[in-house]
């Protein structure tokens, strides 16, 4: 996979926000390195003010890095030709107040789409996000969740190779979240790359191949989602035919006793179960949730700066 060109790559990117009035600066990104491979779903996590949106805005060319550089689809950040192959959904997306089918055509035309295909694609993306019955309605009359769906639709208009989604499900109901999840998974099946920034860790855990955690402008953890969730420290042993009193911290439920023990103690605990006449039902490495991993690596998080979250 590393032989293929990266879909998105940050190379030692730093970004400082200056304040003319106070002559102070805030470092939003600090020597940030990241490589997103083609065809993967990449989860981008971090507490408020960690610099996630800043990184995305630099990639899209909305901001210039103070130091460092990067590439998107093989072109330098900010390249308009590269953006033609990218779909972007901003956090708190804002759209013009007009009929949503015409709005889709407007955004498609900005990406040099035209002809009969434009209207056809507009109908197609509105169907994909479940807004086909609202196509003639003014987006100004939409609820926040519907605006977010329309925002996702405009990001899909050009059938992008790279989809950058900043909090795509924050305003959505559970049904719509499932729909977005399926959209993301089907996009990957079609060979697209998805860069997903979200606070909804359960969503990220479900769909992402790899995850990076950003904290105070620095990358503090990155890896395959399955590897991050796998704890190498502990094992859960489930046994029957014994009582939980024999093992400190064991939990008994429906005749099964569950013990979470360090891997180094696994063999001795299993032998003890057998000595007591019990039977081992299962031995599994303990899996953590992404939330646990997130809390662990951002444990020293301070309250966000007043201008954080940019």
């Amino acid at each position: 996979m590393t032989g293929m060109p990266a879909a998105l790559e940050f190379e030692k990117v730093s970004k400082e926000y200056g304040s003319f009035a106070s002559r102070q600066s805030v470092r939003a990104l600090d020597g940030f390195d990241l490589r997103v491979e083609t065809g993967e779903i990449f989860g981008f996590l971090g507490p408020n003010g960690a610099g996630k949106s800043t990184a995305i805005h630099i990639a899209m060319g909305f901001m210039r890095p103070t130091l460092g550089q990067g590439q998107m689809l093989g072109r330098p950040f900010g390249d308009a030709a590269a953006r033609r192959r990218v779909g972007f959904l901003a956090e708190n997306v804002a759209l013009y107040h007009r009929r949503v089918d015409r709005l889709m055509c407007f955004y498609g035309a900005l990406n040099r789409m035209g002809g009969a295909r434009l209207g056809e694609r507009a109908r197609e993306v509105l169907r994909m996000v479940g807004l086909q019955d609202q196509a003639k309605r003014n987006a100004g009359k939409f609820s926040r969740g519907m605006v977010q769906r329309a925002g996702l639709a405009q990001a899909l208009m050009n059938d992008p190779e790279l989809l950058i989604l900043d909090e795509p499900t924050s305003a959505l109901d559970p049904l719509a979240r499932v729909m977005v999840r399926e959209l993301i998974l089907s996009a990957r099946e079609a060979g697209k790359t998805i860069f997903l920034s979200s606070h909804l860790l359960s969503e990220v855990e479900l769909v992402c191949d790899r995850v990076a955690v950003l904290h105070r402008g620095k990358l503090v953890r990155m890896g395959r989602t399955s590897d991050l969730l796998q704890s190498t420290e502990q094992t859960a042993i489930v046994a029957r035919g014994i009582t939980s009193d024999a093992f400190g911290g064991a939990v008994s439920q429906n005749g099964l006793v569950t013990m979470t023990v360090p891997i180094s103690n696994q063999r001795s605990v299993m032998q003890r179960v057998w000595e007591l006449g019990g039977e081992i039902v299962s031995v599994n490495p303990v899996r953590r949730s992404l939330e646990q991993v997130f809390l662990e690596v951002t444990a020293d998080a301070q309250p966000p700066q007043p201008d954080g979250g940019r």
């Binding site: 033609r84 972007f88 901003a90 804002a94 990406n111 990001a155």
Partner: peptide
């Protein structure tokens, strides 16, 4: 201010255009 500029400039539109 309305953040609508983000959806426009995320397309193949150069700043001078």
């Amino acid at each position: 201010k309305s953040r609508r500029i983000l959806a426009v400039l995320s397309k193949a539109v150069r700043r001078e255009q």
